[in-house]
Each structure stands twice: as structure tokens, then as C-alpha cells.
Design a protein around this nucleic acid. Sequence first.
DNA 1: CTCTGGTGAGTAAGTACTTACTTTAATACG
DNA 2: CGTATTAAAGTAAGTACTTACTCACCAGAG
Lengths: 218, 218
Amino acid sequence: MNGKTPLKTRAAAKAAKKPRKRLSGEERRAQIVKVASGLFSKKGFKGTTTREIAKAAGISEAVIFKHFSRKEDLYKAIIDSRCSDNEGGPRLIGMLKGKSGREVFMTVAVYLLEEHQKDPSFMRLLTYSALEQHSLSELFLKTRAMELLGFLEDKIHELIRDGLMRDVDPALAARAFIGMVDHYSIGQELYGFKRYFRRPLEEVAESFVDIFLEGTRR
Amino acid sequence: MNGKTPLKTRAAAKAAKKPRKRLSGEERRAQIVKVASGLFSKKGFKGTTTREIAKAAGISEAVIFKHFSRKEDLYKAIIDSRCSDNEGGPRLIGMLKGKSGREVFMTVAVYLLEEHQKDPSFMRLLTYSALEQHSLSELFLKTRAMELLGFLEDKIHELIRDGLMRDVDPALAARAFIGMVDHYSIGQELYGFKRYFRRPLEEVAESFVDIFLEGTRR
DNA sequence: CTCTGGTGAGTAAGTACTTACTTTAATACG
DNA sequence: CGTATTAAAGTAAGTACTTACTCACCAGAG
């Protein structure tokens, strides 16, 4: 058992116990953001302690405060990393340009359902943020949500002008569509609906697009 | 001013400061539940302190613990008072019996939108509860949400059978409809959409019912 | 007098955040 | 090349304050 370290047992034990990886500032920062993000999404900002974050990251609390002077700053760093341009939003809008009506709505539905399914923690984070009135939801609203709704609104307007849709309120119709899709994901992930009810992602998307497009067809 | 109590100034000041209403046990209990409910819905369970509750109710913390041995018990009492049979749910389902397709969906939409607008705090409470995985959301899901969805599902099934609707997945369609309506309220209240976008309640309900019914029409 | 509704002043266990200190790795230099 | 220097990465053990929850006691209606 202790054959290797008959003497110096304390130092040896310590060394054995802690194969401590020493990370660079940037690496550690990113790790903390990732760990905290996961915890905040599960338990909320108030519900997560800096101690827990430190423990989960395998470091002492002081390290967190070397990188983020306040717990609140950690939240902001998470926002930046989650809402940064390299992932998400812009990609979707880019995918939509030049597509036909049905293709647009189908793409949006599949994209949103896939995103939620791939990473349900973001939706939780966003919802917590909205409730706790942090800026994440505000930022997300103004960058992502509004952009997508605006795009759909324009598209609907265009379809109406071209006589392909009935004369519905474009803003309301856009929200109706996003509502169907988002609310489905929220039900599955937050309210535990998936225990009672589950459909293949494509089937869900197809159904919603059908209902929406038939409902708005001229 | 102090003609009545020239002496005993301390006692007099105290008496003047606190026109303390002495409530019966039941009254006090109900008051605490009401106050706590409002605070929990604004700041969440973890985000609300017993001290805040006491202050808001104009009593000392100890009184709270005379009525509820743990903070958690207060949550349960709130659940009971919010989900009790006398208000909400059953009334809605009752209103729906024997109505035609359009009437059913219109009634549901108006009802949900009105409820959310009348008391947005319940939605917040419910959402917090779902995130924090308290039993309120579970209970609500099993009593109210499932019941309403089940009713709509049956109605849709019936309408399909009678050749009044296309052959859509009834469960999915029911969720699509509730999704449009609920998601609209959530957007308005939680994500602050109402700063940018507002429509009369009836117009919103009518639009959603239109989109849904046209979309599912045979 | 008594019993119920009410209190002020605790307590122990957290909480975010700090301080004084140690370890490690890369670099400057004799 | 090895060794002193330095600065960053890391820590244990605090601090000041908040938290849920308690307890010994009080006041006034019946």
C-alpha cells in the first residue's frame, strides 16, 4: 500500500493527491466560465455559491476572484462567451437568405429545436436570467430574438405582398410561429414533458410548419 | 399632540409607532402566504429572505416560523393556495364543455392571456419553480396543464373524426396552440417584449385562433 | 389569570470576498 | 550549463456580513 513512500509520507500523499494541473490565465478563465455556466444554468445565480464553482473547477475560491473581481462579473463573462458572434444566431439568419417560405420556416424550426436539444442549459440560463433580470436576457433579446423575429416578420410581409399569405399581422404571426417551437422545447426541458410525450425532432418541426403555413395561406 | 401621555414617553412613542394590528392565526397565515408569494415570484425562492418577508408583512421573522416551521413549508402553502380547486383550472375546463371548435380555442386563448395579464406573478412563480425543480411546477403540470392539453387533444381528435380538421397529430397540435398563446405572455412579461410590441388581448387571441384553425382545417 | 399572538436578541452555519503567504515555471545571467 | 530572480498561479485561513431558524419573554383580549 505504502511501499513507495515509507518516509516523507505527508509530502508524498499530498503529491499523490494533487496532480494539480497548472493552467495559464486564459485557460483557467475559460474553465471557470464553463464550469460556472453549467452551475448557474442548473441552480441560478443566487443558488450557486462561489465555493461550489471553485470545487467543481478543482481550485480554491481565491482563484476565481483573481480572474473576476465580483461574482457578477463572472455572469457577464458567461454572457459574452454565450452570445459571442462566432456561434449561433448569425449563422441561422445567414442560412435563411434567399430561401423560399416553407424552407425558411422549416429551417428555423429545426434549428431552434436542435439547439435546445443539443444544449438545454442555455435555455435554462436564459430563463433564469430573465427572471433574475440580469442582462443576459436583455442582450439575447436585442441581438438574437429580435433579429430572428424581425427577419420572419419581413418574410411574412413579403409573402403577403406576393399573395402567398393571408393578410395576417406579420409581427404577431412571427411570434406565433416561434412560440410553437420554443414552447415545445421549454415544455420538454423545463417542465419535464418528455417523460410523457416525445416525437422525432423533424416530425415536430414539420407539424408546426404545416399548421403555420396552412393557417396563413391565402 | 402628546396631551394624553405626557409621561411614559417611551411607551407612548412605541405605541404611536406601531399601530400593530393583531390578527388571528388564520388571517396572519394567509397574509404571510400572500406576501411571500409576491416576493418569491419576483426574486425566486433562494433570492427571497425570510427577513424580507417579515418586513413586507410588518411582523418579526419569528412570527413566520410560528406558522411555518421551515421556509420550504411556506412554499408548499403557496402551492396549495395557488393550485386550490376554488380558482382557475376547473373553471376553464367547465367553460369549454359543449362548445364548438372555434369557441373552445377562442375561450382558451382569451382565458390564458387574461390570466397572465391579470396576475403575471403566477407565471413567474411557476417558471422559478420549474427551474428550481420545486414541486409547484410538477403539481401544476399534472393538474392544470395536462388536463387542458388532454381536453384540447380530445377535441382535436373529435374534430378530425368529424372531418372538420386535417389529420394532424392531436397532441402536437394542442401543444402548438398553447405554445403560441403562452409564449406570447411569457415574452410580454418575462422578456419585456411589451416595451416594443403590444396588441389588444382580443386581437392576439383572434389571430392565434385564426392561424391555428385555418392551419388545421380540412 | 391565562393563553395566544407577538417580539428582541440571539445562534450556528453559510455567504462573497480578502489577505498573507507558498509553489511553479519561465527567463536572465554569472 | 546550472542557478538566482521574478512574476504569475495557486492556496489556507481568514473577514465582515447574511441567512434560516430559535428561545426566553411580553402584552393584551377574554
